[in-house]
């Protein structure tokens, strides 16, 4: 075929047009995919990542969605997110606390199984895992707040007394009982979800949430006066004035648990001798924690 300059020009023009078409098509596809990706990479609050997972944005860059962590979990609680079914990014591993919480294996087999380090291999103490944070999220329906005895969440917590504590509050309804209120401490809670699984309610009143949803954050400039006390050498705020009860001479009231303290020679309230003999301590928590090794 004789190659005239005109022909060459035409070919060149066709080539450029085709290239432009391809580039535009691929570009549009990329734009759509990028937008979908943005929407699809927001982790739903019920999907909890395995222990040691990097921060979500890093995790999504690091996880190949291979499922090796899923395979090595002896309790088979992990699942790879399915396209359209689970709202976590397609193929990434997660668990649902209410149906299958992390059992906090001492050797954390899921972590070394991860080939990429999306589950950080430097996590060797499962108690240091921060998969999420438990929150006693519905204090209106949790039966503990109604003055009923439950404490299931407290009892199943692998770090009970550290991650989940019971706090007593006066029961205003009955006037003379205590409420046993479950309180989560973010210093220790691993977010395993055993409490959420165990909650006896139809819909759990304690839920594990991603840490960023569960926690507030103080403004960076904010300083708490009493925390500054040490640094400054003295308190920056005037201390609260002690509330005074109108009690007879020699009788005091301790707000922080001890209650009424009678220092007089003949006390008003006299504990009978039978009280001394009971095997139960006057603190109900001692009974609950009987036989439970002190966690330190």
């Amino acid at each position: 075929m004789p190659s005239s300059t005109g022909h060459k020009k035409l070919n060149r023009r066709k080539f450029l047009a085709d290239t432009a078409k391809t580039a535009c098509g691929v570009g549009l596809f990329g734009l759509a995919l990028g937008m979908y990706g943005k929407a699809a990479s927001s982790l739903p609050a019920t999907a909890i990542r395995p222990p040691g997972a990097l921060a979500e944005d890093k995790f999504l860059a690091a996880c190949t969605r291979c499922g090796l962590c899923v395979r090595d979990c002896p309790y088979q609680i992990l699942k790879l997110a399915e396209f359209g079914n689970d709202n976590a990014a397609t193929g990434t591993p997660f668990f649902t606390a209410r149906t299958g919480p992390c059992e906090m294996c001492e050797d954390i087999p899921c972590v070394p199984a991860c080939p990429t380090g999306a589950l950080n291999h430097s996590l060797i103490d499962i108690n240091k895992a921060r998969m999420g944070l438990a929150v006693v999220i519905d204090q209106e329906t949790c039966i503990a707040f109604q003055g009923l005895r439950c404490e299931i969440c407290y009892n199943v917590c692998p770090l009970r007394k550290e991650a989940l504590k019971l706090e007593y509050r006066p029961n205003k309804r009955s006037g003379h009982h205590a409420l046993f209120i479950p309180v989560v401490s973010s210093d220790a809670c691993t977010g395993c979800g055993l409490c959420e699984k165990a909650c006896i309610m139809e819909e759990a009143a304690v839920k594990v949430l991603p840490v960023h949803l569960a926690k507030g954050e103080l403004g960076k400039h904010y300083r708490l006066g009493w925390n500054q006390k040490g640094k400054q050498g003295k308190s920056l705020v005037t201390p609260d004035t002690e509330h005074r009860f109108n009690l007879p001479e020699g009788v005091e009231y301790d707000y922080y648990g001890k209650g009424l303290i009678d220092k007089r020679q003949t006390p008003l309230t006299q504990p009978g001798p039978q009280v001394e003999k009971t095997p139960f301590s006057s603190n109900p928590l001692d009974t609950l924690n009987k036989g439970f090794k002190e966690v330190k």
Partner: peptide, 8 residues
Amino acid sequence: TGTMTYEL
């Protein structure tokens, strides 16, 4: 995007 978007 800083993530494996195509893998979605």
